[in-house]
C-alpha cells in the first residue's frame, strides 16, 4: 500500500507543479510583453519547471511499473 500512496502523492504533486508553472507563465505573460526585466529573468524558469514537472510525473509513472507493458 505504501508504494501506491507514494505514487499517488507524487503524481498529484507533479500535476500541481505543472499547474503552478502554467499559472506563472500566464500571469507573467503580460509583464513579458511590457518588457519587465524581472519577468524576463523568470519566464524561462516557469516554462522550464513546467517541463521538468512533467518529466518527474513520467518518472513516477515508470515507478508504478505501468510502462513495462
Amino acid at each position: 500500500m505504501k508504494k501506491v500512496q507514494l505514487l499517488l502523492v507524487g503524481l498529484f504533486m507533479t500535476l500541481l507543479g505543472e499547474l503552478l508553472s502554467v499559472a506563472g507563465i500566464y500571469l507573467s505573460s503580460q509583464l513579458i510583453i511590457n518588457n519587465d526585466p524581472l519577468a524576463r529573468l523568470l519566464s524561462g524558469v516557469f516554462i522550464g519547471l513546467l517541463l521538468i514537472s512533467f518529466g518527474i510525473m513520467i518518472a513516477f509513472y515508470r515507478l508504478s511499473g505501468s510502462s513495462e507493458a
Binding site: 519566464s43 522550464g48 510502462s67
Partner: peptide, 29 residues
C-alpha cells in the same frame, strides 16, 4: 527487455523534458 511502446518512449521523453527544462531555466536566469 522493455518495449519502446510505451516504456522506451516514456524514458526518452523524460530525459528530453529534463534536458530542455534545465536548459530553459539556465537560459532564463
Amino acid at each position: 527487455k522493455t518495449s519502446w511502446m510505451p516504456g522506451g518512449i516514456l524514458y526518452v521523453l523524460m530525459l528530453a523534458l529534463f534536458y530542455i527544462g534545465g536548459l530553459l531555466i539556465i537560459s532564463s536566469v
